[in-house]
């Protein structure tokens, strides 16, 4: 009854829905798990979930676009978040963001490098204000950053990625 994309593994979605059903989790929890799995919300998931959960696709889309954490575009392997909470902002977090984007060649609204290695975005206060300005990489917090330490961090991540690839 439905034309599915043949390359997409829907069993992952089935597992997530089943697990969340047991916990009484809402569509938000399901989407969070999907995003954890794919690092974004693949478009194939929407009609599939709509059909499975008997809610409209527009409704799922509506929820997915409301919350900052959901991404409809694939994210990089390293998601770098620059905190722009008040404390970090006052201690100059924006130059760090600009440096990171510049180093990675990200222009304007672009957040992810074409090789899907890095995503750079801002995040509302992480509550690590004592360490301002902070940056997180895949949820690991790096305190008291400067544009220069950001460059260093980027270089070490690049090296790590290269090592993984060659290994």
């Amino acid at each position: 009854m439905q034309e599915q994309s043949s390359s997409f593994d829907y069993s992952v979605i089935d597992d997530i829905v089943e697990a969340q059903a047991a916990l009484g989790g809402s569509i938000i929890a399901i989407l969070q798990d999907v995003q954890e799995q794919f690092r974004y919300l693949p478009r194939e998931v929407f009609p599939y979930l709509a059909n499975k959960l008997k809610i409209s696709q527009a409704n799922i889309y509506s929820v997915a676009t409301f919350y900052e954490n959901f991404s409809l575009d694939p994210k990089g392997e390293y998601v770098i978040k620059v905190c722009d909470g008040t404390a970090c902002h006052v201690r100059k977090s924006i130059p760090i963001l600009e440096r990171l984007k510049k180093e990675l060649g990200l222009i304007g609204d672009q957040h992810t490098t074409p090789d899907l290695l890095f995503t750079v975005e801002t995040v509302s206060c992480l509550g690590a204000c004592g360490l301002a300005p902070v940056v997180t990489v895949n949820d690991k917090v790096y305190p008291a950053m400067t544009p220069d330490t950001a460059t260093e961090l980027l270089n070490s991540l690049k090296k790590e990625a290269a090592d993984v690839q060659t290994a």
Partner: peptide, 20 residues
């Protein structure tokens, strides 16, 4: 009970639209 349109995004970007 159709629900083919809904809100999307938020704040100043809020819109009423279909999925995607």
């Amino acid at each position: 009970h159709v629900g083919c349109i809904d809100f999307a995004d938020r704040g100043y970007d809020l819109k009423v639209t279909t999925a995607f």
